[in-house]
Structures are given as structure tokens and as C-alpha cells.
Computed example of a mutant assay.
Amino acid sequence: MTNTLVLDVDGTLVDTNYHHAIAWFRAFRRHGLTVPTWKLHRAIGMGGDKLVAEIAGQHVEDEHGDDVRAAWEAEFEPMLDEVRPFEGAHRLITTALEKDFAVVLASSGKRRHVDHYVKLLDVPDVASTSSDDVDESKPAPDLIATALDRVEGGRAVVVGDSVWDCEAARRAGLPCVALRTGGFAEADLLDHGASAVYDELDRLRADLSDLPFGPA
């Protein structure tokens, strides 16, 4: 049965995590709130529907949540043209396809952002998800389940860069391998369930056939 590679996008395939942290910082500042960027970075990879309460508390979510998210979108939009794929991202995907893996991009980003990343990665025929496809974002497992529904695969592994990817994979009952490309420490990723941590996409690509695939 075909193995499936469930790939996170932001911070895993494209270099966006620090752009997102700055955009969130500016979004909170629009509402008179100063949140340390290190705390924001630690929350990147979690869906925007959860981030405001996680970082600033439920009272801020209740009062300003939607406005902060709208401000984040406005702050991030001008940065979109600065985003670049990580070295080896295209090679990872094309090699997996050449090995007859099913590949799906499990992103909780905005659809137009995901479409932009797909163009950057030059993988127009690969299935993908966006925040429009689920009611609840990472670390909930919904996005992974939706991604798996889009491909005809069997055993699967999740590849991500954040502790939230690891948690979503755990809740979905799937193994996860992680990359340090998003800025999370190796120890944190392992503590949250990653079975292995890679510094580079090409190193992960070399181990594709040996990844810990589990029943989807």
C-alpha cells in the first residue's frame, strides 16, 4: 500500500515563521498590546484561531480576537513576496513522488498564501489544505485527517517544524518527524513526540524510505 507524506508548509517547506512572528507582534501592537516576540515565535504553527488566547489570554480573544487576526493578515501580506522555499523543499517533494509516495501539503494557512507557496515550490499537482478546510486548526488533528482524505495513501507520516505539528500528529495517531527549520529546539520537538529531528530537508530526503510510517 502507498506510503503517504503529510507535509506541513509554513516553517517546514517555506521560510515564514519569523515573518509570522513579526506580523503578529505588529497586529497586537495595533490594539495597544505588547507581546514578546519570543512568545509569539513559540506559538507559530498553532492555528490563528487559537493563537490569540494562547498568547494573550481568553479575555483578549473575546475582546479583540477577530480584529487581531485581521491585523495579522494585513501585516503579513506585504511580506509575502519576501518568502522563499527552504533549500531542498522541491527536491523532497519530487523525490517522494518519484518513489511513488502519496504527498499532501497539510497547511492551515490562508488559501491564497498556500497557493502562493505551491507556486514557489513548483509542485502544482500536489494536493493541499488550507484554513478554509477545517473548523479547528493545529494542534487539533482535523487538518491531518482532511489532508489524508485528499490522497489515496495507506501508511503515513507527518513532517513538520513545530511542537504543534508533533501534537497534531500524536492526536491523529500518526508518527511525526521534525525539522529545525522553524526555529524550535531539537529537545522540544523530541519531547513533543517527534521520532527524529533533521537540520536540513535534504537529509530527511535521504532517509525517506526509512521514515516511521504508521497506519493512516
Rank of each mutant, 00 (worst) to 15 (best):
T37F: 04
T37D: 07
K39N: 09
K39I: 11
L40Y: 03
I44D: 06
I44C: 07
M46Y: 07
G47N: 02
L51K: 14
L51R: 14
V52C: 08
A53H: 06
A53D: 09
E54P: 02
I55V: 15
A56S: 08
G57M: 08
G57W: 08
Q58F: 04
H59R: 12
V60W: 10
D62S: 12
E63L: 11
G65Y: 09
D66E: 09
D67P: 00
V68P: 04
R69E: 04
F76W: 05
F76D: 11
E77H: 11
P78S: 07
P78L: 04
D81W: 02
E82Y: 07
R84K: 14
E87R: 09
G88L: 00
R91M: 01
I93T: 02
I93H: 10
T94C: 04
T94V: 01
T95D: 10
T95H: 12
T95I: 03
L97I: 13
K99H: 13
A102C: 01
V103M: 10
V103Q: 00
A106D: 07
S107W: 00
S107A: 12
S108H: 05
R112M: 07
H113F: 06
H116A: 14
Y117G: 01
K119A: 08
D122S: 15
V123E: 06
P124T: 07
D125G: 11
D125K: 03
T129Y: 00
S131T: 02
S131G: 03
D133W: 01
D135G: 15
E136F: 02
E136N: 13
K138C: 05
K138H: 06
K138Y: 13
D142Y: 01
L143E: 00
A145W: 15
A147G: 10
G153T: 15
R155M: 14
R155Y: 13
A156G: 09
A156E: 03
V157H: 01
S162C: 06
S162L: 03
